[in-house]
Design a protein around this nucleic acid. Structure first.
Lengths: 227, 227
DNA sequence: CGCGCGCTTGACTAACTTCAAAGATGGTGG
DNA sequence: CCACCATCTTTGAAGTTAGTCAAGCGCGCG
């Protein structure tokens, strides 16, 4: 059940994030932040870093993850364009953020956010709503990790991703098998084998390893919720 | 890994919560809510119920849980005196709440909370802080469920509970083995066997099944974080 | 062309679950 | 006050799922 300590897979320990093509010029009173870009695999913030602002993903995708000291990793969430992280009252990040594709982010200072809340109290409600939605997602994820089988985990994951990306029957996976495994609390081999099983049962098709077609969403849904 | 469907263990389907000894008289403009009491095992709210207010636990303890349609259960959290649930911008509860001991709760209407926020905007920040703390706890729980072994889960659980209850070396477990199993994503037998193993290794002592003494917190901590 | 990387597959192993039964414990009623 | 019953916990033996170790495949890039 437990991945071996040698499973540390942080092959990336890059410099950090560099100012993007647009650069710091966008730091203006309009409320638009600093645009930065990150290459795939690049680390944006590390668990324990002080939270100095929040990021909104303009394009691309990132993963949030936590690790044990011996390198086992749990992916907390994947974020895509339009979603944010770093909106918290905590002092430090409780997770690491890494790009899983070439990603553009807009960084906003915490001070400005505080000021904006003063100016328009309605904003506080929006942030609270985001935190509540994140909490609901995390709790759904708890049920998946604690009580679902590998088949159920994959079915849930594929359906959830399709719903999130707004695609009816096909999903372009933005993450690797390793990322999926670390999100689902499985190993890469089990993810691969389970996808193969779903494919052999005619529930999905794999055009390429990243391009999944949901052939039988109805049956996948039944599996996802416990046959 | 997956508990059998027959593992449905909601032996309780009681009427709900009855007005407590103090009754509805406490519904006054002071902001003090309605006091209610629940016997051990009694259901307070059910997953899917509309959120009509929030509850603060005056005494006793409750568990929050989610279930699959076939009855497998994942405990999301345990709450003790002084802690709250139902503080959310969601419309419906995403979890069921049940008392795990004789519990007294104070119920506050949502409308009054909204009004209080209008009156003192600082309150909004407090609520946001609670949501962020809950989120951090849930994410720590994700790492436990997804990537820790049974030994690590139990060590983490006992240390966390001791820290939370503010006791140095002894813990009075307020929940059953089944509840612990459902929190840790294990079966009741594995919980029992693991506690026995920790006891035989001299790391803990069990005065009674509920009374745990942490004999070697240092070694437990090393186990909790991955030997 | 061949090298490297990510994905898949196979054989075997280990951890945890399942099924079964035997202690504890605690409350209730005789 | 004590015996009995229901419930919770512990323990044992066997079964399953997912993990580990190892190798092969396929694609893209230099």
């Amino acid at each position: 059940m437990v991945a071996s300590p040698s499973a540390a897979r942080r092959t990336e320990a890059q410099p950090a994030v560099e100012p993007g093509p647009v650069g710091e010029r966008l730091e203006r009173p309009t409320g638009i932040g600093i645009t930065v870009t990150a290459a795939s695999g690049q680390t944006i913030v590390v668990e324990g870093d002080p939270i100095e602002g929040w990021f909104r993903i303009a394009s691309g995708a990132v993963r949030l993850s936590k690790s044990t000291p011996d390198g086992r990793r749990q992916v907390i969430d994947f974020l895509i364009a339009g979603e944010s992280f770093g909106i918290s009252s905590e002092e430090h990040y409780g997770y690491t953020v890494e790009a899983i594709a070439r990603t553009t982010l807009v960084r906003h200072s915490r001070a400005r956010l505080e000021a904006a809340i003063e100016a328009q109290p309605e904003l506080a409600r929006r942030l609270f709503g985001i935190a509540c939605a994140d909490l609901q997602r995390a709790r759904q994820h708890l049920l998946l990790l604690g009580r679902k089988s590998a088949d159920e985990k994959l079915a849930s994951f594929l359906l959830g991703l399709a719903a999130r990306l707004g695609t009816r029957d096909g999903v372009q996976l933005p993450m690797s098998r390793q990322d999926m495994a670390d999100y689902l609390g499985l190993t890469i081999e089990t993810v691969s084998r389970t996808l193969t099983r779903l494919r052999r049962q005619g529930l999905i098709a794999l055009r390429t390893p990243q391009q999944v077609v949901l052939l039988r969403p109805d049956r996948l849904r039944r599996i996802a919720e416990g046959s």
